[in-house]
Amino acid sequence: MKHVFSYVAGFVPALVLAAGIAGAAEMTDGEKQLYEAARKEGSVTWYVSQTTTEFADGMCNLFEKKYAGVECNVVRASGQVIFQRLVQELQAKAVQGDLMSTNDDGQMLQLKEQGALAQFAPENLKDMVPVLRDMADKEHYWITSGVSPLVIAYNTKLVTEAEAPKNWTDLTDPKWKGQVAVGHPSFSGSVGLWTILMNDLYGWDFFEKLEKNAPQIGRSVADGHNLVVSGERKVALAPLPLILSDAATKKAPIAVVYPTDGALLPPSATGILKDAPHPNAARLFENFLLGPEIAEYFSKDYRYPLRAGVPLAEGMRPLDSYKTRSIETTEGISKLPDIQEKFRDTFGI
C-alpha cells in the first residue's frame, strides 16, 4: 500500500475532504442501521476478480477502518475461477461469499437469471457519475463498481514510443514474435470479453495470426503488466490502472497505448448474493464501494473514480477522450463458451 501514501501530496484537498467525512463519522440513518446490523454479523466475505489482491486488500482495510467491528475477508482469483467457485457453492447450497465483484458483467446477469442475486440500491448511487451508474442493472441486482479499460502496455526501455503498437492488430505484427503476452479467456473474465471483441472486429483470423507470434499466455489478465515491467515481454494486454500505477509509483519502465481501434471497456459489476451469510455487511460494503473513501482510493491508484466530482489522477485521460468499446452483456454470455473453445483449439491450451 505504499503507493497510497507516496501520492498523498498530490491530493491534499481531496484527502482533507475524505478525512473530514471519516472523522465526523456522520453516517446517514440508513447507513447507521446497516452498520449496526453488520456489526452483529461480524464480517463480510468479498469475492473479487475486479482488482488485484493487493488493491482489494487495500479497499478492505479502508472498510474495516471506517466500520470497526466488521471484518472484511478478501477472496481474490481470476474472473472465471471465482465465478466457477460461486456456481459450485450455489450448487452445493453452501454459499460462503457475501458479494462478488467482477469485470465480466455477463456473470452477474447469469447469476441474476439463476435467482442467485439480491436486489439492493445503495444510498450512494445518487452521487455516482451518471454514465457509470446507468451501466448497471436497471433492477438493482448489481452496481457498477469500476471501469478498467483493457489497453496495450509496452516496456519503455525495450520499445520506443514510435515502435510501440498503435492498435490491436499491430500485436499480430511478426516483429513482436515471442514478445507478446495475453491472458486466457477461460481463466480471466475481461480477457474473455476482449477475445469476443477481437473476434467481432477482425474475425478469428486475428488469433490465428497472434498465435504465430507465440504469445505468452497467462491465466490472469493481471500478470501482463508484470511481464512487461520485468522485460520478459515487450508488449502485453493489460488493464490501464495497473500500467499507470506501475509507471508512476514504482517508476517502472512501462507505458500505455490507447489502441486506436478502441480500448475494451468492461464495466466492473458488484452484486450481493441472495444467500449471503452476512447480508447486511454485504449491503454496507456495497454502499461503501460507492462512497468517497473508495473514490479517493481509486483516483489515487489511477482508476476512474465512481463518484461525480472526484478529480482524476495526474496523467490520466478522461474516459471520453479516447475510443472505447464494450460488449453487450447478453452478447458476452452467448458468445463466450464458443470463443473459449476456439481459443483453446487455436492455442492448444
Partner: peptide, 9 residues
C-alpha cells in the same frame, strides 16, 4: 499459485 498468476514473483 495465485501470486504466480498475478505475476507477483
Amino acid at each position: 499459485l495465485d501470486l504466480s498468476e498475478e505475476g507477483e514473483l
